[in-house]
Design a protein around this nucleic acid. Sequence first.
DNA 1: TTGGTATATCGGGAAAAGTCGATATACATT
DNA 2: AATGTATATCGACTTTTCCCGATATACCAA
Lengths: 100, 100
Amino acid sequence: MDQVDIFKALSNKTRLQILNWLKEPALNFPDQLNPDFENVGVCVGQIQIKAGLSQSTISEYLSILQRANLVSATRVGQWTYYKRSEEGLNKLNQIISTEL
Amino acid sequence: MDQVDIFKALSNKTRLQILNWLKEPALNFPDQLNPDFENVGVCVGQIQIKAGLSQSTISEYLSILQRANLVSATRVGQWTYYKRSEEGLNKLNQIISTEL
DNA sequence: TTGGTATATCGGGAAAAGTCGATATACATT
DNA sequence: AATGTATATCGACTTTTCCCGATATACCAA
């Protein structure tokens, strides 16, 4: 995964919003049944409702963010929970402040 | 110019290279006639040769980078010199560390 | 095992980006 | 004024991205 793909992942309004929403899951996803936000994250369906795009689109967007290492996924039963990958985001920070 | 457009500007290998080359103009553009790199920057033709893409493509790429505030341009005679916009790059740094 | 729910993947149509060659514009020189 | 050089813009074509609906897969519950 190179720099270009990271920036491509960030080149979309909805994907940027998702990253932002995931900063405060409890605030942005009050309807999530499993409220263990910190550990598992937010499930696809909740993100889809909030974004207002189709299920398939959001699923793909999340996998784009995941491939760019900006979020991580955990499968629990039928749900996939996504949360921010602070590791990846920190690495991006470094890239930008040193390599750009 | 919103965040998405900044990331789009960075979503291209050649444009990332240009930004990098402009970090060390003297090193990367030894053939530039006007060697006043720090003040004016590097002209389009030199960048075009180094990138190996067409003149029109590089001209457009530079204007994309300029619209995203990542480089600034100075016209001197028939030449347009481009250099990094450290202001814009710093702002990007801030965006990423605070808003992302 | 049958049906229900959550997510992922596939195929496709529309829009945007990548890239070119040709042309226009701007400036300099003779 | 005429020509030459540097850059910008235009029109076109190809590739990629956006986003959808339909279908497949995975898991759960009766």
